Amino acid sequence: MSEPKWGIVSTIKAPMRDVLGFAAYHLQRGAHRLYIYLDTPDVATFTALKAHPKVRVTQTNAGYWAKKGARPDKHQPRQTINAADAYAKRVEVDWLAHIDHDEFLACDTPLPEQLAVLPDACFCARIRPVEALAWDGPMTEPRPFKGFALPMPERRKITEALYPKFGAHVNGGFLSHVAGKMIYRTGIEGFSVKIHNAFLGEDQNPGQVELSAARLCHLHGADWAKWQAQYAYRKDRGAYRAELNAPFDQGKGGLNMHDLLTQIEAADPIGGLQAFYDELCTPRPKLLEGLGQYGLLHWHMLDLDNAIAEQFPDFA
């Protein structure tokens, strides 16, 4: 019996180098197909991706949206529509993961081996994230990522110990999601996927299994400058938008990220956000030691330049 083939679908709006790095990294690690939807039409990036035999790239231009209906204003529904489009295509992979261009799969054992042993009743598997700490070392060396404990009581206790100033309000010490992303079987009638969950009719995440030997390396706050540059958009329309629920103590004084950040800004307009970022993302020795003691420190090397040179040599 042959090993299952896997692929990725992603909706991306980013500079060409970032898109090629994302694609090359996953091709280098065995992705059989990448279905990439360019959220803003980009001829140069489209041409570069289309030349690779394992990449299926779509310009989500006016013609594309004319077939899908009106282009949603927010990127989250656009992601969902594009994921559905990829799922409906001629099946070229056995498993498909819906992830973003700042997320990179890392596995302790080859992903096909992990997928091959899943029971037939498992239609989807969850890959939990580890979040990048700031790092100025070379890309040719591993960089640190922080994890979190899965059981909530343990998670909250550890988080408050590692991040004493802000940890009581931040889920696992993460700036972004802890839900991770799904990889799911293809070719199932009535199956659909959203950003963090999958559905078969009304059944959410049917047969879900946690892939404990796979991680999603998330470069959400990889350095202060990039985090600051994306902060306003994320607070208005992205991961920190106002309508999201608080991670815990919902309705009992718990703060969502939007409210927490608003309070931090109000209390210290100049240094508040810097202090928040520094506590959660600066790889100071005490934090690295604490993460290590709890088994939550992970080191992964992405080396995107090497991946681009291998998979897209004309653009290296």
Rank of each mutant, 00 (worst) to 15 (best):
V117T: 14
D85I: 06
C122L: 08
G137L: 07
R78A: 02
V93D: 02
N171A: 06
S192F: 04
A116F: 04
N197E: 13
R185E: 11
M152T: 12
N171D: 13
Y87P: 03
G173Q: 07
G167E: 06
L111W: 05
A86L: 09
G172Y: 11
R155P: 05
K194A: 04
H177E: 12
S176K: 03
G137M: 05
D94W: 04
A179C: 05
G167C: 06
E189L: 08
V130M: 15
A168K: 12
V130Q: 14
D120T: 15
P142S: 09
E103A: 08
K89Q: 15
I127D: 03
K194F: 00
R185V: 11
T80Y: 10
H169E: 15
V193P: 02
L111H: 07
N197K: 01
W95E: 10
P112C: 01
K146A: 00
L133F: 05
E189K: 14
A161I: 12
I195N: 03
V193F: 00
F174W: 10
L118E: 02
P77T: 01
V93N: 04
A84T: 15
H177A: 07
C122V: 10
R126K: 14
A168W: 02
E154A: 11
F148S: 13
C122P: 12
Y163I: 02
F199N: 02
H177V: 05
S176A: 13
R155H: 09
L200Y: 00
I188E: 01
L105R: 08
N82L: 06
A121V: 15
T80D: 14
V193Q: 09
L133P: 00
R156G: 00
P151N: 00
I195E: 07
L175E: 06
Q79F: 06
H177M: 05
R156M: 06
D102C: 03
R143A: 13
I195K: 01
G173N: 04
F148G: 00
V117W: 05
E189G: 03
A134T: 15
I99P: 06
L115S: 07
L118N: 11
G172L: 04
P110W: 01
R155G: 09
V193K: 00
M139W: 06
E154V: 13
I183M: 05
R185N: 06
H196G: 05
R128G: 10
H98I: 08
C107I: 10
A86K: 06
K181Y: 10
K181H: 13
L133G: 01
A134W: 13
P138I: 01
I195H: 00
A198Y: 00
I183T: 12
V170I: 14
E160D: 10
K89I: 02
K181G: 01
L133Q: 00
G172R: 03
G167S: 03
A86D: 09
D94Y: 03
F174Q: 03
H177Y: 15
D120W: 08
P119E: 11
C124W: 09
A106C: 11
K165C: 09
M139L: 12
A86V: 12
Y184R: 01
V91R: 15
E154S: 04
K165Y: 09
H98N: 11
A168Y: 09
T80I: 15
A161P: 00
A121G: 12
E131H: 08
C122W: 06
L118F: 07
P164F: 12
A116D: 13
F145S: 07
E103W: 11
R185S: 04
P142C: 08
I188M: 08
G180A: 07
K181S: 01
